[in-house]
Amino acid sequence: MDEAVRRSRRSNHSVNGSDSGETVTAVVTSKETSVESSRALDFKAPEAVRTVSLVRHYRLGGSIIPAVDGVSIAANRGEFIALLGASGSGKSTLLNLIAGLDRPNSGAIVVEGQNLATLNPLELAQYRRHMVGMVFQSFNLVPNMTLYENVELPMRLAEVRRRERKARACEALEKVGLSDRMKHRPSEMSGGEQQRAALARALVNQPKILLADEPTGNLDSKTGNEILELIRGLSRGLDMTVLMVTHERPLAERFVDRMIFLGDGKLLGETQNKLGAAK
């Protein structure tokens, strides 16, 4: 086992030290996994995102629920991937782990050569600030802020200078076609407009990875199509990797390059989507 894997394990144990009972079940032990891990933690690998034997368990009463159970996936730079599965299959949990919002019980997440398991909370916050953008099913715009202020918020957190913030927020809102609605509050907008604003907010810090958690879940099919069209266009223009959670396979087939299937927290399989890739 190489040093990188040992380091990864050590850090996983330290992160989850308080519930080591859960962690023990998921520690990487088999020879196959070690080989896989060793390859996965090659930090010079071409993939934008790679997860290795990722495990996230939750306690529910006396029982342990394996939300993500040994999932290893990889996403290449600029790729548009859909994570598909029924409710409770672990799609959103996997996305939260890649976003650095949640910590795995074991396994590794390597994003652009950076192993998230080794990052402390402050470094994780910086990672979320600069490396990833997030879009949610329920838009998650701050209700008492205008669209402009919502889009400006990630730049405040990233300590971007005020003048530059203004230029970039205006540009982002213009890209999503909302330049004339800057002063409006989210409650004054339609669902599609709110999602476009959320997309502008996710992209304003120029992240390398866009994580979308059912971005069309609260939208009608026409608006959903428009949003995915927009995501696809922006990701190609910015060479940005997109990981999108959805359970609408037909919609995914129209836009994504690859589909990854999850069920009961496990990886069921994946398929290239020539139709989407050809678009």
Binding site: A99, R128, V142
Partner: peptide, 16 residues
Amino acid sequence: RREIGIMKALGASDGD
């Protein structure tokens, strides 16, 4: 509560 979650998702640290 939700707003705090949004801010953290956007990169706010615990300190922020």
